[in-house]
Design a protein around this nucleic acid. Structure first.
Length: 556
RNA sequence: UCGGGCAUUGUCUAAUGGUAGGACGUCAGAUUCUGGUUCUGAAGGUUGGGGUUCGACUCCCUGUGCCCGAGCCA
């Protein structure tokens, strides 16, 4: 297994005994949206490192902003982390668990002269902050007495002031090159009920005044977060230092970017709210729930997260790797079945009318123990429309006038006649079969290049199939330059619904969430929301690798 | 322009002064009752310039490019 710099840090800490042999990590989502594949990277990293080195990983909700957070998201996040295969035991925490302690710590900072109540408006604070190149200016309220600060802060807590009237600020350095150190806001007034603490509080700590201390309280050893918090580390260090409490080590890594995919919770929420998708769990969404509904396995996602590595350089991973991980997993496990997505009728003219035979079909060539099933064969069948061409190019191994193909698990047939409607559209093929060519038969060994999947007309069941493609036409839809308006970046072909598909009889009763390989077509998953017994709906998780598609595309 | 960070094949990622390696992708071939799988092979890389060294992706100097930062968001 390839290692990465964070694993090396943990290993070395273990060797030197820096944390007394402990590894304690945590995954700290804000419950303001659904988890996506980028979060999966962090989840696998934090839980993975803990289990690899005999440590523990907590689940902690960073719920310091009641205007954006909901219990609805808490539930979804719990389900997703569990589904990915991780367990936090009894260590599920909330930053809001620490509100009392955080308040007391704020009081301590005030008493020690490290924090003050500021009456400046948000706008004035911004003006005093200076710019990236120019230092800021002290607030006129910066030097209030400890007693006055204590009094004011308590009255903030007691609800005496309106939202925005006052804030508590750290007294650090208005000239610091690091903007986070220019007297950052620690507490703000928000007369908004909190999903857990209700209306007990009307002041709430900022993330920066909650995160580091929550890590400290939970005795986190390696506080792993993404690159944008690198500039905040000096602030966390300052707070923990002034408080004189346990001090975890923060380590930053680059967040995941995926080509043609949006991994910003804010923008994903926009897609949901504007109805561009069928909710957070739309199979086109990069959310864990969307990928689950699409047919991704937890194993494939974990494998992906291991393969992409962990580093500090920004990078964009190709979709092909994610798809490879899914195919590799499903190739081993998914039952093979036959489904015709765009049916074309064929009649075997020399096959007795009314006769039905049953042939054995292996369920998975990669796993003989998966056994086999019986599939019915009759005179009238359906094949894939794309598997016939009236005027085929050279390397076309499929059906064409006068050409032979093998029907998987059945006979070799020859196309004798093409039937068209008044519009010149092919509506039926009349074929003959070689009765000895059945599996095990006298002429079964004949070299035939093409093998097609099929269903028996009278036995097949109708099904709906959804074909998904990437949601965006832009490699980086999050880039405002590349994609100024989210909606115009959407791929108009991200979803194709096929209503008249025909599947093997047994598939009509498939269970929600069950995954199959539709022979030669791809991996499909029974939709967990809309599939009904007798009226199945399948989502295409990923196509099979398709060298023919590549060849024909190249030729134009 | 200030502070912080980052640059290795098309993509992701190793190499911690000693043969630049792996994965995905691409291309070619073999096998195959899935144009799938499997197997074999190939092409392809150290951001530019200087230095130190027997030897530099690695150390030093100096450019260049990219990312993050001016929320009472996280």
């Amino acid at each position: 297994m390839p290692s990465h710099f964070i694993r090396e840090i943990v290993k070395s800490d273990l060797k030197t005994g820096k944390w007394n042999g402990c590894v304690q990590t945590r995954f700290p989502p804000e419950p303001n949206g659904f988890l996506h594949i980028g979060h999966a990277k962090s989840i696998c990293l934090n839980f993975g490192l803990a289990s690899e080195f005999g440590g523990l990983c907590n689940l902690r909700f960073d719920d310091t902003n009641p205007t954006k957070e909901e219990d609805f998201y808490v539930k979804a996040i719990i389900e997703d982390v569990k589904w990915l295969g991780f367990d936090w035991g009894d260590r599920m925490f909330y930053a809001s668990d620490n509100f009392v302690q955080l308040y007391e710590w704020a009081v301590k900072l005030i008493k020690d002269g490290h924090a003050y109540v500021d009456d400046l408006s948000a706008d004035e604070i911004r003006q005093h902050r200076g710019t990236l190149t120019l230092p800021g200016r002290d607030s006129p309220y910066r030097n209030r007495s400890v007693a006055e600060n204590l009094d004011l802060f308590e009255r903030m807590k007691d609800g005496e002031f309106v939202d925005g009237a006052k804030v508590l600020r750290a007294k650090i350095d208005m000239a610091s090159g690091n903007l986070n150190l220019r007297d950052p806001v620690l507490y703000r007034i928000l007369k908004v009920p909190h999903h857990r603490t209700g209306d007990r509080w009307c002041i709430y700590p900022m993330y920066d005044f909650a995160h580091g201390q929550s890590d400290s309280i939970e005795k986190i050893t390696h506080s792993i977060c993404t690159l944008e918090f690198e500039d905040h580390r000096p602030l966390y260090d300052w707070i923990l230092d002034k408080l004189g409490v346990y001090h975890p080590q923060q380590i930053e890594f680059a967040r995941l970017n995926l080509a043609y995919t949006l991994l910003s919770k804010r923008k994903l929420l926009q897609l949901v709210e504007e109805g561009c998708v069928d909710g957070w769990d739309d199979p086109r969404m990069p959310t864990i729930s969307g990928m689950r509904r699409r047919g991704y396995t937890p194993e494939s996602i974990r494998d992906f997260c291991e393969r992409i590595g962990v580093a500090k350089a920004n990078s964009t991973v190709e979709m092909a790797l994610l798809e490879h991980c899914l195919r590799e997993d499903l190739n081993k496990r998914a039952r093979r079945v036959m489904a015709v997505l765009r049916p074309l009728k064929i009649v075997i003219t020399n096959y007795p009318e009314g006769q039905v035979e049953e042939f054995a079909a292996e369920n998975n060539p990669e796993e003989p123990e998966a056994g086999s099933r019986k599939i019915p064969f009759s005179r009238e069948l359906y094949i894939e429309r794309d598997d016939f061409m009236e005027d085929p190019p050279k390397k076309f191994f499929r059906l064409a006038p006068g050409k032979e193909v093998r029907l998987k698990h059945a006979f070799i047939i020859r196309c004798e006649e093409v039937v068209k409607d008044d519009g010149g559209n092919v509506i039926e093929l009349r074929c003959t079969y070689d009765p000895d060519s059945r599996t095990g038969g006298a002429t079964a060994g004949r070299k035939i290049k093409g093998t097609l999947h099929w269903v028996s007309s009278q036995h097949a069941k109708k099904a709906e199939v959804r074909l998904y493609n990437h949601l965006f036409t832009k490699v980086n839809p999050a880039d405002e330059k590349e994609c100024p308006d989210l909606k115009t970046g959407l791929n108009p072909d991200s979803l194709e619904v096929l209503k008249d598909c025909l599947v093997e009889p047994a598939l009509a009763e498939a269970d929600p969430g069950e995954r199959f390989q539709f022979l030669r077509m791809g991996y499909f998953c029974v939709d967990s929301k809309e599939s009904k017994p007798g009226a199945p709906a399948f989502n295409r998780a990923v196509t099979l690798r398709d060298t023919w598609a590549k060849i024909s595309k190249k030729k134009g």
